[in-house]
Nucleic acid binder design. Structure first.
Lengths: 273, 273
DNA sequence: GAGTGGTCTAGACCACACT
DNA sequence: GTGTGGTCTAGACCACTCC
């Protein structure tokens, strides 16, 4: 059979999940306008896997079917499935473990605590476990700026949240968060008080919202009096301002965060290449 | 032949470049201590390609041999070469172009100007062409801190360099750089004055030094009087301090940089995931 | 031992760029 | 048309994990 099968012409047959992906070019009527140019099979498989993740067919931390099984299901070769999975693993959506299987990535794993927090102690080493102190949690109408960042309609309800991260008794980070209230129905101060783990793990568990990636904009600012007091520094002290937008599947923004980092004993670590 | 060839036992034959890579496990005497566990063929090929890059067999911007040719040279299949090249492309050491070939990455390409500079205008869009103004260039003995960062012996000579990046007439970045003098023999103020392009392109062209990746540590600081004057801001203004160590092949640090960024109209952009 | 991901091969064909 | 990287397949075997 090798080589006799035409690329992506694929037998008309079964596999309901493949119904939509016959034909290598996105159809656009009779004339081959060829705008998106070309869509390889493995990208179509990747999109199907992504859909399964998005609709919750496989939950964070769970084992997904083996490559062999997925290959049978999608009626493609194992190599094609592998390439799709590889890309999802590269994007931190899946985790492959030799001999065990492929798992849905989660914010629960010990190794990935603070996966999104790039703050690092100056001396080297890894950030110790920080304690969290929630200062505020309220519902209000989104300001135009917040609405724009979260892609909400003007005036929609958001949850505003303020918290401190502390190393022992020493404040390190002051975070203000805004979340679309529609997606975080049961979120309130009581729930936050009970919860001990990472915030993103709570979102995953209680609201079925997986944070996939985030964009950060970093600036140096002078501490306002109120913020300075909370962080225990003199007013006008220089602080690192980290504005973060976090996204879930489909590049939907679901969190806006404004963090003020104390960087006299820590720094924001980054790799460029 | 498919499947009959044993993994990495590989015929004793020719290809001098393969002489060193027979056997899947790094040898360590008779008892299989198995410390590094296992080294797949494609990683060995990757190491060989890396070596060719490092010794300058292929220069930045140049076309490297085709996958087929490399497969013949190393006596492995094209797929194995492909996987090695893919990893090097992922690390920005090579650039693959369908239909044309695989090229050695360079700091010359138009698309990758400011590849290491994560500063972005607040309004969105891309950083316009900045002008460079060199303020200082001198040779001196490395301070202990600089020596440590560049992995030099105490008291070795380094080149200290100061420059401004400006948008029009407005200063944006004040950079202090330290370079190991031994590697940058002909570097002086005159050479810098003549050069118009990116600094890393100059290093590539004149000193055969390719910057591969960099680590950055970011902080917020208050502007000292001298620096404030150069940047045209009030003393004690908050500035972003970006300490960068750049590395060439073999993870050798070859530049230490201390940048002060004005972030009232720009921000440092980052992606976390 | 069974099952999973990881490596390696060989070969065919496709998309793309240059000539 | 020729040559390059890109995709896809089929099959074998290896390394690892768990039973």
């Amino acid at each position: 059979m090798a080589g006799t099968r035409h690329r992506q012409t694929v037998s008309a047959a079964s596999a309901r999940e493949r119904a939509s992906l016959r034909g290598s070019r996105p159809r656009g009527g009779e004339r081959g306008a060829a705008l998106p140019s070309f869509s390889p099979l493995y990208l179509q498989i990747k999109a199907l896997l992504l859909r399964s993740l998005q609709v919750g067919e496989w939950q964070p931390g769970q084992l997904i079917p083996s490559e062999q099984e997925l290959a049978r299901r999608f009626e493609v070769s194992q190599g094609t499935v592998r390439k799709a999975i590889e890309e999802l693993a590269l994007a931190n959506l899946l985790v492959r473990r030799q001999g065990r299987g492929t798992f849905v990535a989660s914010h629960a794993e010990e190794g990935t605590r603070y996966r999104f927090l790039r703050l690092t102690p100056d001396g080297g080493g890894v950030l110790p476990r920080l304690s969290r102190r929630f200062l505020d949690c309220r519902r209000l109408r989104a300001t135009p700026e917040v609405a724009r960042a979260l892609e909400l309609a003007a005036g929609e309800t958001v949850i505003e949240l303020r918290r401190l991260l502390l190393e022992g008794e020493r404040p390190i980070v002051l975070d203000d968060l805004w979340l679309p209230a529609a997606r975080f129905a049961r979120l309130d101060a009581a729930l936050l008080a009970r919860w001990q783990g990472p915030l993103y793990r709570l979102f995953e568990l209680e609201f079925s919202l997986r944070m996939i990636r985030a964009e950060e904009r970093i600036r140096a600012v002078a501490a306002a009096p109120a913020e300075a007091a909370l962080l225990g520094v003199a007013p006008a002290s220089p602080l690192l301002l980290v504005e973060r937008r976090s996204f879930t599947y489909g590049d939907q923004p679901v969190e806006l965060r404004r963090g003020l980092y104390l960087t006299d004993r820590h720094h924001y670590r980054n790799e460029v290449g």
